[in-house]
């Protein structure tokens, strides 16, 4: 019981001291965490740049989309053969029957 009183009383009395103390602690913590964060970020960046060779969107586009476009550009509109057309119709009919049994 007495301990509790003491605690409460000390809290009230030393509020100013404690406030300044907590500010100091807070600043210290902020500094530490800031430094830690910066380190982590830079480390992560370093690791990611090492792991993933190039994240340049321009280059990614050139390698992925443009390559696809070029591949399509070299293709022709080719008429289907009679066999292909028959097979396609057969595929559609069978697919419908399979789905709607």
């Amino acid at each position: 019981m007495a301990d509790r009183y003491k605690k409460v009383l000390t809290k009230k009395d030393s509020s100013k001291v404690k406030n300044s103390l907590s500010r100091r602690i807070f600043l210290k913590k902020a500094l530490i965490s800031g430094v830690a964060m910066a380190t982590t970020v830079s480390l992560a960046k370093k690791v990611s740049t090492l792991a993933i060779p190039d994240l340049n969107p321009q280059k990614l586009n050139m390698n992925d989309v443009i390559a696809g476009d070029i591949a399509m550009a070299q293709k022709k509109y080719i008429l289907m053969t009679k066999r292909e057309k028959e097979d396609l119709v057969q595929f559609f009919v069978e697919n419908y029957q399979k789905d709607n049994l």
């Binding site: 399509m72 550009a73 070299q74 293709k75 022709k76 080719i78 008429l79 053969t81």
Partner: peptide
């Protein structure tokens, strides 16, 4: 296309811009 069947089965004598 397919090979050796000529234009009658969809030859590509017609040069177009491609499927772009």
């Amino acid at each position: 296309y397919p090979k050796d069947y000529g234009i009658e089965v969809g030859g590509n004598a017609y040069e177009n811009a491609g499927v772009t």
